[in-house]
């Protein structure tokens, strides 16, 4: 992204800065570049190490597996013969994260807009503080709240969906039990990632250059038109990366989902029925009793989750790259 200008070649300072000699400048620059590049390379090394260890440690499990790793929905790695696969995990993870994104992205952007450009100044700073704070509420607290307080209240929603939209298979519920479902987990995930999305989006909205906003308003734009013409184009990369952060949290959320889901290893599109399991919650639920093969199988599932996040980020990159011209102060 070409947002910063290269410093001018090697111009001699017109007025030498007191105490700074040319050599010191170069040494300082070299040291600083080295340090910052080192930090960046350390990240690459860490990521490589994570990948290497996940691959290495998943080999014994994958070798012992007698079923197809990608199409099997069951998870019995420690039995003999070992049978496990990620079909149910993939389905549950994508469904819960999908529901969460569907609910949280529009609402999160709405909150950010409200705080940044609709609320009064004093209210905005309080609300900004509250959203930042909520982004920090740990997932375990959402999990405890979700299972103790929210689940009972969502029964009505599940029933309503079944009664009025039951003709859509997604919402049909023949079992008549509405708790511990994928829908519930998705809703809690949405609530959890909401503050993350809105906190970052708000930060970006606030940075929209005053001149853009005033120019739009001076042209007679309504507030909404100003938002669409000035704020959104400027903030789009930030909004996307905020959403990606939210998606990352939704895909990998462990404890809350482990407490909320019924953990059944099948692919059931009736999202209001009890059931569903995700990669991350499966690790939390099976890690405690896993044997050698079991642990290896869990690492293999972690590897798949890793690859999924990789793919999601590649996709996001493509989207952002096309919008790159809006980033930075140009």
């Amino acid at each position: 992204m070409s947002t910063t200008l290269e410093p001018p070649g090697t111009p001699a300072p017109p007025v030498p800065h007191p105490g700074i000699k040319g050599a010191a400048v170069r040494r300082g620059d070299r040291l600083f570049v080295g340090l910052s590049r080192g930090a960046g390379v350390l990240i690459l090394v860490t990521m490589a190490a994570i990948a290497v260890f996940l691959i290495w440690k998943s080999i014994p499990g994958l070798q012992a597996n007698t079923a197809n790793f990608f199409t099997t929905a069951e998870w019995f790695p420690d039995q003999k013969p070992s049978v496990f696969g990620i079909a149910a995990l993939t389905f549950g993870t994508l469904m819960t994260a999908g529901i969460a994104m569907l609910l949280a992205v529009p609402v999160g952007v709405g909150i950010a807009l409200f705080i940044a450009h609709y609320a009064s100044r004093r209210l905005a700073s309080t609300l900004g503080f509250v959203t930042d704070l909520l982004a920090a509420v740990p997932s375990i607290i959402f999990g405890m709240w979700g299972i103790q307080y929210l689940t009972p209240h969502l029964v009505g929603l599940g029933q309503w969906l079944n009664d009025y939209l039951g003709f859509i298979p997604l919402f049909a519920n023949e079992a008549g039990i509405y708790s511990r479902s994928i829908l519930n987990a998705g809703i809690v995930l949405a609530i959890m990632i909401l503050p993350t999305i809105s906190a970052i989006t708000r930060e970006v909205f606030v940075q929209t250059p005053r001149a853009h906003i005033e120019a739009a308003l001076a042209l007679g734009a309504t507030r909404w038109e100003m938002v669409r013409m000035a704020i959104f184009p400027f903030s789009r990369p930030g909004m996307i990366s905020a959403s990606m952060l939210g998606l990352g949290r939704a895909l990998g959320e462990t404890i809350a989902v482990a407490l909320m889901l019924s953990a059944t290893y099948d692919i059931n599109i009736h999202i209001t029925q009890p059931g569903g399991i995700t990669f991350a919650s499966n690790i939390a639920l099976k890690w405690n009793e896993a044997g050698t093969i079991g642990l290896s199988a869990l690492v293999a599932s972690g590897l798949v989750l890793f690859v999924i996040t990789l793919a999601v980020n590649m996709a996001a990159r493509l989207v952002i790259a096309r919008r790159a011209e809006f980033s930075g102060a140009n």
Binding site: I43, T46, M47, A49, I50, F53, L54, S241, M244, L245, L247, G248, L251, G252, E253, T254, F279, A280, I283, A284, L298, V299, G302, L305, F306, T309, L310, V312, N313, A316, R317
Partner: peptide
């Protein structure tokens, strides 16, 4: 970017 998405439980496993 990828690292942002790496789930905490996977980091724990690592």
């Amino acid at each position: 970017d990828v690292m942002t998405g790496v789930p905490s439980v996977v980091v724990g496993l690592f």
